[in-house]
């Protein structure tokens, strides 16, 4: 019943693009954080360039954290989630639809704009394509954890702070590998092996996270 995946995905993406703020807010957030970096660290191009892989990845982590919080909010409040569970469709594929919709709405625009933000942080040009490649795999993992976190906290009225405590420790490997890929590329080292590890993690997360998300949705509906 992967039909329900396509339906959830297209509905969520349509809803997001009907309300452009949903797509633009994470990007504006990243832009503002990028502005804070030279103000806090100083404008020296060497300093910024050296830290830019880590800064970009930490920003991506925070952006995904903030954008995921409201993923289920509307559907939980108006009963859509309940209808989805009682409809008899596979909740596994519906969860995968939510996961992919978050990636399409928050992940892909960030990947596309990351080159711009990275150059503003004076990242060396040889790091930019690897940054986009690592974000491609990494944001998928972030969306998987994020959707899980959102589904487990949707019934709680004060989920925001809790969400960061739940998600950031789990997302440590993505941060390390993602920043590592870019660091290596800038240093002129091969990155294919690391990228395949990241892609493998992304596939693992895509396959396994919906099991946990579906279980969490059922729990949240019982509250």
């Amino acid at each position: 019943m992967s039909n329900v995946l396509a339906k959830v995905l297209s509905r969520q993406v349509l809803l997001a693009f009907r309300r452009p703020a949903a797509v633009l807010n994470p990007l504006v957030f990243v832009g503002v954080v990028v502005l804070m970096m030279p103000l806090g660290l100083g404008p020296e191009r060497d300093v910024l360039g050296e830290f830019s892989p880590g800064l970009m990845w930490i920003t991506a982590l925070l952006a995904s954290l903030l954008s995921v919080e409201t993923l289920f909010r509307g559907d939980y409040d108006d009963g859509t989630l309940e209808q989805l569970v009682t409809s008899g469709h596979s909740l596994y594929f519906a969860s995968m639809g939510y996961l992919l919709s978050h990636w399409c709405v928050a992940g892909i625009p960030l990947i596309l704009c990351s080159g711009l933000f990275a150059s503003m942080l004076s990242m060396p040009t040889e790091g930019i394509a690897p940054l986009m490649a690592s974000l491609f795999a990494g944001t998928l993992v972030l969306s998987a954890f994020g959707t899980l976190g959102a589904s487990i906290t949707v019934a709680l009225r004060r989920g925001g702070m809790l969400l960061s405590l739940l998600l950031l420790p789990l997302e440590v490997p993505v941060l390390i590998l993602g920043a590592g890929v870019v660091d290596r590329a800038i240093g002129g080292m091969p990155i294919a092996d690391l990228l395949s590890v990241m892609m493998g993690l992304a596939m693992l997360a895509l396959a396994l996270a919906p099991i946990a998300i579906a279980a969490s949705i059922r729990i949240s509906l019982e509250v």
Binding site: I152, A155, L156, R158, L162, L165, E222
Partner: peptide, 12 residues
């Protein structure tokens, strides 16, 4: 701490 905080956040 995440597990503990999640537990504390639920009323049920």
């Amino acid at each position: 701490l995440g597990v503990y905080a999640l537990y504390e956040a639920y009323d049920n």
